[in-house]
Design a protein around this nucleic acid. Structure first.
Lengths: 213, 213
DNA sequence: TTTTACACTAACTAGATAGTCAGTTGATTC
DNA sequence: GAATCAACTGACTATCTAGTTAGTGTAAAA
C-alpha cells in the first residue's frame, strides 16, 4: 500500500493532484469561468479537500499561478551557454523562449487570464523576481560583450530586448485564435512556426548589428 | 420630449446604450465574469431589454465583439498616406497601431478575452475581413515599392510584417500588469511609451534595410 | 377612434455555484 | 492498544445568476 504512487492520505500528493487539475481548469476557462466542482471531479479527492488545502477558489488560483513562473525559470536555467558568441547565445535564448511559449499554451493562457484579472493575484504573491533577474543579467552580459566586440551597434536595455522577442513569442500563441480567423490562416501551423522562429531572431539580430541612423 | 437625446422607446438608442455598458463590463470582467444584472444597472433600461434585443448573454457578447474590429478599421482608414516614402508610410502605420492599442485597452482586453474563449464567438460572426485585407494590401505595396527602390533588402510577407509590429504593440498593453510586476517597472509610463514607440519602428526598419546574411 | 405591434418593466424562477460542516479514517505517538 | 491529530468524505446550504413572463405604455396605422 505505501509503495503505491496514488496512495491517499498523503497531503503533498493530494495538493499536487489538485494543482494539476486546477491548472487545466483555470487555463481553459479563466478565473471566473473555472468551476470548483469540475476541478474536484477531475481529482482523486473531493471538493472538501480543495477548501481544506487552499482555503477558497482564489487561494487555489493563487497557488496555481505561483507555480508557473518558477517552472519557466527552471527550464530556462537548463540551457547550456558555454563558449558561445553573443549572437549565438542570444539566438539560443530566443529559441528557448519561442519553444517554451509554443509548447506551453497553458502558461500563456494563465498569464493572459491574470492580466484580465489586472495582475491582482500575482501582485499578492512573492513572485520570485529572481526568475527575470537571471535572464536580464544574461541579456545584459550578451549586450556588453557584443558592444565590446563591436558586433552590436545599438544601445538597448536588457528589458527592452527581452520585451521585443517575448512579445512576439507570446502573441503568436496567445492570439492565435483571433489572428487565424481574421487573417484566414493557421498561425500555429508547423510551416508558420518554423518561419516565425527564424524571423524573430533575424529581426532582433539585424537591429543589434545595425547602427543608429 | 422627442428632442430629448435620452428619450426612451427608441430601439436603436437603447441597443447602443446597452452595447456601450456591455463593452465596459465584458472588457473589465471577461465573458464569464461579466454580470448581466450589473450591465442592466449601468444602462438607462432594464434587464428584460437586454434579452429582448440580444437574445441571451452570448448574443450580447457577440454584438459587442462585432463592433470592435470595424471601429479599428474605420480609424485606420482615416490615415493620410499621400506622397510618403515606403519607410515613412510604414512608420505612419506602426505609429497608428501603437497609439490605437495604447489608447484602447478595452479593445485589447476584448481580443484577449475572445482568445481565452478560443475564438469561438468571432468565428461565428461574419467578421469583416476587409479590415485586414486593406492593411495587408497596403503593407504589400509598401514592401514592393521599398524593394523596387532597393531600400528594402528582405523578403517578408505582409502578414509576417503585420504580426511583427502588432505583437509588440498588443503585448505591452495586454500584459502590462504582469510584466510591470515581474520586471518591477511601469510598462505604460510615458517614458517607456515614448521609447517603445521609437523602438518598434527602428527594429522593423533595421530589419527591412538589412540584407540576408 | 380603435387597433396593432413594437418597446418596455418589474417581479419571478430554476438551476448553478462557492463554500460549510458533522462526522470518519488511518497513521503516529505515548 | 489507546489517544491524538492531520487528512479526508459526502451531504448540505445560502446566494448568486441567467433567463422568463405576464402585463403595461406608446406611437403609428387603419
Amino acid at each position: 500500500m505505501s509503495g503505491d504512487i496514488t496512495t491517499s492520505r498523503d497531503a503533498d500528493q493530494t495538493r499536487q493532484n489538485i494543482l494539476e487539475v486546477a491548472l487545466k481548469e483555470f487555463s481553459e476557462y479563466g478565473l471566473t469561468g473555472a468551476r470548483v466542482d469540475r476541478i474536484a471531479k477531475g481529482t482523486r479527492t473531493t471538493k472538501g479537500m480543495i477548501y481544506y488545502h487552499f482555503g477558497d477558489k482564489d487561494g487555489l488560483y493563487k497557488a496555481v499561478l505561483e507555480e508557473i513562473y518558477p517552472k519557466l525559470r527552471k527550464s530556462e536555467e537548463k540551457l547550456d551557454k558555454s563558449n558561445l558568441s553573443p549572437i549565438e547565445e542570444l539566438e539560443k535564448i530566443i529559441d528557448f523562449t519561442f519553444e517554451y511559449h509554443k509548447n506551453n499554451e497553458n502558461f500563456v493562457r494563465m498569464v493572459m487570464i491574470e492580466n484580465i484579472n489586472n495582475g491582482e493575484t500575482l501582485r499578492k504573491t512573492d513572485v520570485d523576481t529572481g526568475v527575470s533577474q537571471n535572464i536580464l543579467m544574461e541579456l545584459s552580459s550578451i549586450l556588453i560583450r557584443g558592444q565590446k566586440e563591436k558586433v552590436f551597434n545599438r544601445n538597448i536595455s536588457p528589458i527592452d530586448l527581452h520585451l521585443l522577442y517575448t512579445s512576439f513569442c507570446f502573441y503568436r500563441v496567445s492570439n492565435h485564435h483571433t489572428v487565424s480567423t481574421v487573417l484566414g490562416m493557421n498561425m500555429l501551423s508547423s510551416s508558420n512556426s518554423i518561419r516565425h522562429k527564424r524571423l524573430v531572431k533575424d529581426v532582433i539580430i539585424a537591429y543589434l548589428l545595425s547602427s543608429e541612423p
